[in-house]
Simulated assay, not measured.
Amino acid sequence: MCEMNPYLYGEIIPSTSIGEYRLGIKLNELLNGIDVEYTLKKSRSNTFTHVVDIEGMSFFFDFSTELLIQITVSSGYKGKYKGLIGIGSILIEYKDQISYQLDKEDNDCGLFLPNAPGMWIQTAKWGDDNAPIELISVNKIHKNW
Rank of each mutant, 00 (worst) to 15 (best):
I133T: 05
K104R: 11
L91R: 00
S58Y: 02
I133A: 08
G19Y: 00
G127Q: 03
L91F: 01
H142E: 09
S15K: 11
G76M: 02
V73K: 07
D62F: 03
C109Q: 05
F48A: 02
S64F: 06
D35E: 15
W126S: 07
V138I: 12
G86S: 10
K78W: 12
E93W: 12
P117G: 05
K78S: 11
G56E: 08
S74N: 10
A131Q: 03
I141P: 00
N144W: 05
D103N: 15
H142T: 11
N139T: 15
Y21T: 15
M4Y: 10
L84P: 05
I98V: 12
T123N: 03
N139Y: 01
G118N: 03
D129V: 08
S137R: 02
I71H: 14
P117V: 01
L27W: 13
K140W: 04
N32T: 06
T39G: 13
T49R: 01
D62R: 03
Q70K: 03
M57D: 01
P14I: 07
L135V: 01
K80T: 14
S75A: 14
M4K: 14
N130E: 13
K42Y: 05
A124P: 05
F60L: 00
G76S: 02
G110C: 14
K95F: 07
I69T: 11
S89I: 03
Y77P: 03
W145N: 07
N5Y: 15
K80I: 02
I54V: 13
C2V: 15
Y21H: 15
G19D: 00
V73Y: 12
N5L: 14
T16N: 00
Y21W: 15
Y9M: 12
D108H: 08
W145A: 04
G79Y: 00
Y21S: 10
E66K: 12
N46L: 13
I69F: 05
I69V: 13
M119G: 02
K42E: 13
K80V: 06
L30H: 10
C109E: 05
K78E: 15
Y38K: 05
T65H: 08
Y7L: 04
Y94C: 00
P6Q: 14
K78G: 06
E3V: 15
I92M: 06
L111N: 11
V36H: 05
L67M: 08
I90L: 03
E93P: 08
Q70V: 02
I141A: 04
D96C: 08
Q70H: 11
K82I: 02
S45P: 04
S75T: 07
E55P: 01
K125M: 10
A124E: 11
E105W: 06
M4C: 10
I54P: 01
E134Q: 14
S137P: 04
D35P: 07
V73C: 06
K95S: 03
K78H: 12
P132C: 05
I98K: 02
L68H: 01
S64H: 03
L67S: 13
I136E: 09
E29S: 13
M4L: 09
P6C: 10
Y77R: 07
N130C: 02
N32C: 05
K42C: 11
K82L: 04
I87L: 09
V52F: 12
K42A: 07
F60Y: 13
K143C: 00
I141T: 08
T39C: 13
P117L: 01
L8N: 13
S43Q: 09
E20Y: 00
P14N: 14
T47K: 13
V36N: 04
